[in-house]
Write a protein that binds this DNA or RNA. Structure first.
Lengths: 190, 190
DNA sequence: TTAAAAACTTGAACTACTTCAAGAAATTCA
DNA sequence: TGAATTTCTTGAAGTAGTTCAAGTTTTTAA
């Protein structure tokens, strides 16, 4: 089932059949069990994860000991700590499976060699990163301009299914309010 | 003075001299006057801007009519709306010169042809975008975990000169608090 | 299939910030 | 250079959210 990734790549660049062969020979699927971590704070991140099926998240533990989710990664998303990955510095983040998740994990050394063998992958990863950055800017815009309730409703409109899929407290922290406040929003008590 | 960009590119990939010639022939410097806009909300963004000297910012106008800065771009930074750029949709943002600024403005059509002529530029833009996304994630972490005063002090430690360089109200909105509160933080009245 | 663990709810007290309004200071440019 | 504009300051009142603590419901796994 590396097909999912190859299919995603082909949305942005056209692969030759020998390039597909190379990819298929290099990429393996791994299953990450629910709550299992693929990255812990303080580790150097040298792997990128492509979510084939399931859901991963990137989070931190704040000074009060509460987890705060910074990013979810669902089907067809890449998740990694790019700063740790590029600068070889310890990560500030945890990356964990929210549900049991199938990923294609690519280590930096493997990816570097793939990028040399299949140069057009550079373009694929460029576009993916530029779009992800654009999405991060929109996220900051929403955090800046919307109230907690507006952020919840906005998210629910965009991703109605996803709201059911993760624990409320994870989504609350992703939207930058407390789990208790989420409860009150949902009950209409605000 | 396209040297600044060529120098920046060479931090990530090695250019041949004929590639430098191509770049020099395609890239021109423009000067954006203080307060001049290069992008307005509702326009489709089809240009990327590399700041050679000066300072640009990306901002929105919120529902109360107040400007909120989402991003500053100083020397050696790229600034654009990647979502509008890639998806050909109207931008949510304004991009404006904070001070009179020298930029290298590259239109999408020109960049697309440069990327074909000099494929290793794909790698350069990939790395730039991945690092920018990593920085955006750190930014969200700081917004989530630090108080207003901590964000101000943190920023001042990282960028001591920059704090002097832009109006306080722009920096306040970038750090997500009001201009008045910034005043009180600086006066030690909080 | 049930005990333990995880997730959710509720209300009351609190607080880190915002908003408003008005004046003072600094900067701009004709 | 000086009038206009922009930026910064201050205090008082208000509020959108947090925190805490305790109980309830749901999910997990042996």
């Amino acid at each position: 089932m590396q097909d999912a990734l190859i299919h995603h790549i082909q949305k942005f660049v056209q692969l030759e059949s020998h390039e597909i062969d190379v990819l298929e020979s290099c990429l393996g699927l791994s299953q990450i069990k629910k709550k299992e971590h693929v990255l812990q704070e303080g580790q150097i991140c040298n792997t990128m994860y492509f979510v084939v099926k399931g859901c991963m998240r990137q989070y931190i533990i704040n000074s009060k000991g509460t987890e705060q989710t910074l990013q979810f990664g669902i089907e067809n998303w890449w998740i990694t700590d790019y700063l740790s990955y590029h600068n070889h510095v310890p990560s500030h983040f945890y990356i964990q499976a929210v549900e049991t998740t199938d990923v294609i994990a690519i280590e930096k050394s493997v990816l570097d060699s793939l990028l040399i063998q299949i140069p057009k992958l550079e373009k694929y990863f460029r576009i993916v990163a530029q779009k992800a950055f654009g999405a991060a800017q929109m996220r900051i815009k929403f955090l800046f301009t919307m109230s907690a309730e507006e952020r919840y409703n906005h998210f629910k409109n965009l991703q109605p299914d996803f709201v059911q899929r993760v624990p409320q407290y994870m989504l609350a922290s992703y939207l930058d309010f407390s789990a208790e406040f989420m409860s009150k929003i949902r009950a209409g008590k605000v």
